[in-house]
């Protein structure tokens, strides 16, 4: 568990240190993509707590979800339904909270708080 927290912290530090600048055109897509990535990671944590984690599923899910999220926003932009990104946001948001609550419960069980 510590490794995961450490990895997240490292990623944030890296982002702060590299001073990366995302082009404005990519920004809208990246926003939803980040949401998808967070969701995928939370799903991965949940799966690992349930001992059903599979790295192939995780990696493929991570990549597919982020790319699909960006793609949905892109398509929405192109066909004039700019609000299509809301679909991705809502879907990932619900999944995110779902995963989060499951992770919480699993952690409680593991630490014997239940």
């Amino acid at each position: 568990m510590m490794v995961l927290v450490l990895a997240l912290t490292l990623g944030i530090t890296l982002g702060l240190l590299t001073n990366i600048m995302v082009p404005a055109a990519v920004l809208t897509y990246l926003g939803v993509s980040v949401l998808a990535a967070i969701d995928a990671c939370l799903g991965g944590v949940r799966a690992s707590l349930e001992r059903t984690f599979d790295d192939k599923v995780f990696v493929s899910g991570f990549i597919t979800n982020t790319l699909m999220a960006a793609f949905i926003v892109f398509v929405g932009d192109r066909i004039g339904v700019r609000e299509l990104y809301l679909a991705a946001v809502v879907a990932f948001g619900i999944r995110l909270f779902d995963n989060l609550s499951t992770v919480r419960r699993l952690l409680f069980r593991r630490w014997g708080w239940e």
């Binding site: 995961l4 990895a7 997240l8 912290t9 490292l10 990623g11 944030i12 530090t13 890296l14 982002g15 702060l16 990366i20 995302v22 920004l27 990246l30 926003g31 993509s33 980040v34 990535a37 967070i38 995928a40 990671c41 991965g44 995780f58 990696v59 991570f62």
Partner: peptide, 12 residues
């Protein structure tokens, strides 16, 4: 995955 998420989060 988490490392990537952190990085992207900051960039975004």
């Amino acid at each position: 995955g988490l490392l990537l998420v952190g990085f992207l989060l900051v960039a975004q």
